[in-house]
């Protein structure tokens, strides 16, 4: 018997073991991949809604991709409440991340965050930890007590951790939520029919 070539043996061991290890690690891809949303889940992606069914000043919560979505019919008074408190907002122009903006945003509708300013459509999940904020549209504390600050411009108050949003769903300074409520792509099929997603 000749002497064992230990270097050669170690190389072969590392090479074979390494390849086996890579192969074993690669099998993780299909298994974890299978736990991601399936194609049909991703395909069930649009929701149609008739905004004419929402009364002036009313808020409804509908579903889109299994997520809650706010549709608010903003009266002229409510639309006025959008102005005058930019200094209180973390991100008045909705530029911090992609999700708070949308393709249809123009300089004109930026502060309203809606294609038609009277109908605001946004994802209803607080950007802090996902609760659905409560709609508290009237300004000041008259209707809401001390759940909102004294200079409350009207908007949403999240019951979970106290995040505040204005009537364009923009997050107010001091809230634990980092971002404005998310927007999503949507378009008007007719005067009042909207397809979301």
């Amino acid at each position: 018997m000749s002497e064992t070539d230990q270097t050669r043996r170690n190389f072969l061991f590392a090479a074979a073991g390494g390849m086996g290890g890579i192969a074993a690690a690669a099998t993780v891809v299909p298994f974890i991949g299978s736990m991601l949303p399936a194609a049909d889940t991703l395909a069930a992606a649009t929701t149609e809604f008739d905004v004419a069914t929402v009364e002036a000043g009313q808020l409804v919560v509908i579903q889109w991709q299994g997520k809650p979505v706010f549709v608010v019919h903003r009266t002229p008074e409510l639309l006025k409440q959008v102005d005058g408190h930019d200094a209180m907002l973390k991100d008045p122009n909705s530029e911090a991340i992609e999700a708070v903006s949308a393709e249809w945003i123009t300089p004109e509708n930026r502060k309203y965050r809606a294609i038609k300013p009277e109908y605001l459509i946004t994802v209803a999940s607080c950007t802090h930890l996902g609760c659905i904020p409560l709609f508290k549209p009237s300004p000041g504390r008259a209707e809401w007590g001390d759940s909102v600050p004294e200079d409350w411009p009207g908007g949403w108050h999240c019951p979970c951790h106290g995040s505040l949003y204005d009537v364009s769903a923009r997050v107010i300074n001091g809230s634990p939520a980092p971002h404005n409520l998310h927007l999503m792509p949507y378009k008007y099929l007719s005067e009042t029919r909207v397809v979301i997603g």
């Binding site: 299909p30 399936a38 194609a39 049909d40 889940t41």
Partner: peptide, 13 residues
């Protein structure tokens, strides 16, 4: 059939 068509790598598993 959903596993076969829609689930990622469902056919493989």
């Amino acid at each position: 059939e959903r596993i076969m068509r829609d689930v990622n790598f469902g056919w493989l598993i």
